[in-house]
Design a protein around this nucleic acid. Structure first.
Length: 376
RNA sequence: GGGAAGGUUCCAGAGUGGUUAAAUGGGGCAGACUGUAAAUCUGUUGGCGACGCCUUCGUUGGUUCGAAUCCAACCCUUCCCA
C-alpha cells in the first residue's frame, strides 16, 4: 500500500490523497460502504461500481469467520474472489463486536471469548488468530484487534482497556510480521486508537499507535453514544498527533455532517452502516437534507427521489413510488434506498475532495453541513 | 319456511356486571438507528376548555348504585336443513 497526498485545503486541515493497493487506487477522502458478511446489504457489486462508484468496501472478521467460515473463503481464493468484488477491501478485526456483542463475550488478557450469536458455540479471538484469520480472508487493509470501549465508560475502565488494546496491538504487529499474505496481493495493518472520551488517554494512545510506523492509523471507540462535540474534539485531537503522511481512518463515522466536519480535521477514511441501515429503515440522505421516506407528506409527491442525485434510481423513481414500496414492505424499497444513500455518500466525499484541491473546503463545508442536516 | 351462531374502537379479534376508552395482532401516524445479531426497534392511535369531563361495544327500551357485559323487542350478517 502506498499513500500520497495530492493537496491540503488552504483554509483547514482537509487533505486530498491517494491510496494505492494491489486491487486498485482509492482517492481520499473516501467513504467505505460496510459489507459485514461480504455483502453490502441489498446492493450488487455492479451497482457498487457503476451507480455508487464505491472504491473500497468493508468486511468483518468475526462475522466471516463464523459464516461461511475460513475453509470456504480460503477455498474460494479470498474474499474479493468469493464475493466477486475484485476491488480493494478492508476488514474490521472483530473489535467492534467486543463492544456490540458485549453481552455474550468475555475479555481476558489473552483475547476475547465469544459465544456465537448464531449457535452459541464458543470461539476465542486472540490478536494472533485474528491476524491469521484476516490473512485468510485476504482484505487489502486489515485492522488490529482492539476493544471498542462503550459509552459511558469510567476513566479506570477506559485506561485499562486502552492498555489492553495496546498490548494486543504489540502481539498483532508481531504476528502480522511473522506471516505472509496468502493470495499474492499485499496487506496492510492499521492500528486503532482508543481511550474513550479522555484526552490524556487519547493522546497517549495516538502516540503509542503512531510509534509503530504502520501504513495507516485508525481512530476507534467514537460515535458510540458520546455527545457529538466530544467526538469532534477527540477526533481533532487525534488528528493533531497522528502522522500526517499516513492515512487516518475514523471508524464507524457517520452522518454526512460528521464526515464533512472530520474531513476538515484531516480524516481520510470513513465507514458507517448509516447509509445502508437507515436507508433500509426509510431514511434518505440528500444534498438538500434528510427525508423520512415513510412520512405521509410524500404520498402524492411525484417528484424524483433526488433531483440532484447521481445514481440512476434518483431520477428514475418518484418519492411517492418509493414511499409506496416502503409502506408495502417491498424488497425494491431497500435496494433503491441503499443505492441512493451510498451514491450520495460517495458523491459527498468526491465533492469534498474537489473543494480541498480547489482550496475552499471549509467554506464549502460550512454551507454543505447546513444543507445536509436540514430535515425535509 | 325451520334451526344455529353472531353483530366490540380503522380492520381482525379478546372481553361476558365495577380495576374497560376497552387485551392482542394488523393497519395508520411519528421517532430512533454511527468499525451491522437490525428489511430492525420505540412511541402513539375516540373527543375535549385533559391529573378531569364527554361520547363509544348493531338499534331502542328495561333491570341495577353501576351494563360492552343481564333482560325484552327490533334490525342486520353468516352457516345448516327444507
Amino acid at each position: 500500500m502506498e499513500f500520497t497526498i495530492d493537496a491540503i485545503s488552504k483554509d483547514c486541515n482537509a487533505r486530498a490523497g491517494k491510496i494505492k493497493t494491489d486491487h486498485g487506487d482509492i482517492l481520499t477522502p473516501i467513504f467505505m460502504p460496510v459489507g459485514t458478511v461480504g455483502s453490502v446489504k441489498a446492493v450488487h457489486c455492479s451497482e457498487l461500481k457503476e451507480e455508487i462508484k464505491a472504491e473500497i468496501i468493508l468486511g468483518n472478521t468475526y462475522h466471516l469467520y463464523l459464516r461461511p467460515g475460513l475453509d470456504i473463503i480460503q477455498a474460494s481464493g479470498g474474499i474479493q474472489k468469493f464475493n466477486s468484488w475484485n476491488m480493494p477491501m478492508l476488514t474490521d478485526s472483530g473489535g467492534y463486536q467486543v463492544y456490540s456483542l458485549g453481552h455474550n463475550r468475555k475479555i481476558t488478557d489473552e483475547g476475547a471469548i465469544f459465544r456465537s450469536h448464531i449457535d452459541g458455540s464458543k470461539h476465542i479471538f486472540t490478536p494472533e488468530n485474528v491476524m491469521d484469520t484476516q490473512r485468510v480472508i485476504g482484505a487489502d487493509i486489515i485492522m488490529a484487534f482492539d476493544e471498542c470501549t462503550p459509552y459511558p465508560c469510567d476513566y479506570d475502565y477506559a485506561k485499562n482497556s486502552m492498555k489492553l488494546t495496546h498490548s494486543w496491538l504489540e502481539r498483532c504487529v508481531r504476528r502480522f510480521n511473522e506471516t505472509e499474505p496468502i493470495y499474492g496481493h499485499s496487506q496492510s495493518l492499521f492500528p486503532i486508537v482508543q481511550g474513550s472520551v479522555y484526552k490524556d488517554l487519547r493522546r497517549e494512545s495516538c502516540e503509542r499507535i503512531a510509534s509503530y510506523g504502520l501504513e495507516g492509523n485508525a481512530i476507534g471507540g467514537l460515535s458510540v453514544g458520546e455527545p457529538i462535540e466530544d467526538m469532534y474534539e477527540l477526533t481533532d485531537l487525534c488528528c493533531s498527533i497522528l502522522p500526517k503522511d499516513k492515512p487516518r481512518y475514523l471508524m464507524g463515522v457517520g452522518t454526512p455532517a460528521n464526515i464533512l466536519e472530520c474531513i476538515d480535521m484531516g480524516i481520510d477514511m470513513f465507514d458507517c452502516v448509516m447509509p445502508t441501515r437507515n436507508g433500509r429503515n426509510g431514511m434518505l440522505f440528500t444534498s438538500e437534507g434528510i427525508i423520512n421516506m415513510r412520512n405521509e407528506k410524500w404520498k402524492n409527491d411525484f417528484s424524483p427521489i433526488d433531483a440532484n442525485g447521481t445514481s440512476s434510481v434518483d431520477i428514475l423513481y418518484s418519492k411517492a413510488y418509493l414511499r409506496h414500496l416502503f409502506v408495502a414492505k417491498e424488497i425494491l424499497a431497500l435496494q433503491i434506498a441503499s443505492i441512493h444513500n451510498l451514491a450520495f455518500y460517495l458523491w459527498l466525499v468526491k465533492e469534498a475532495r474537489k473543494h480541498i484541491i480547489e482550496g475552499d473546503y471549509r467554506a464549502w463545508k460550512t454551507m454543505m453541513v447546513k444543507k445536509v442536516t436540514n430535515r425535509l
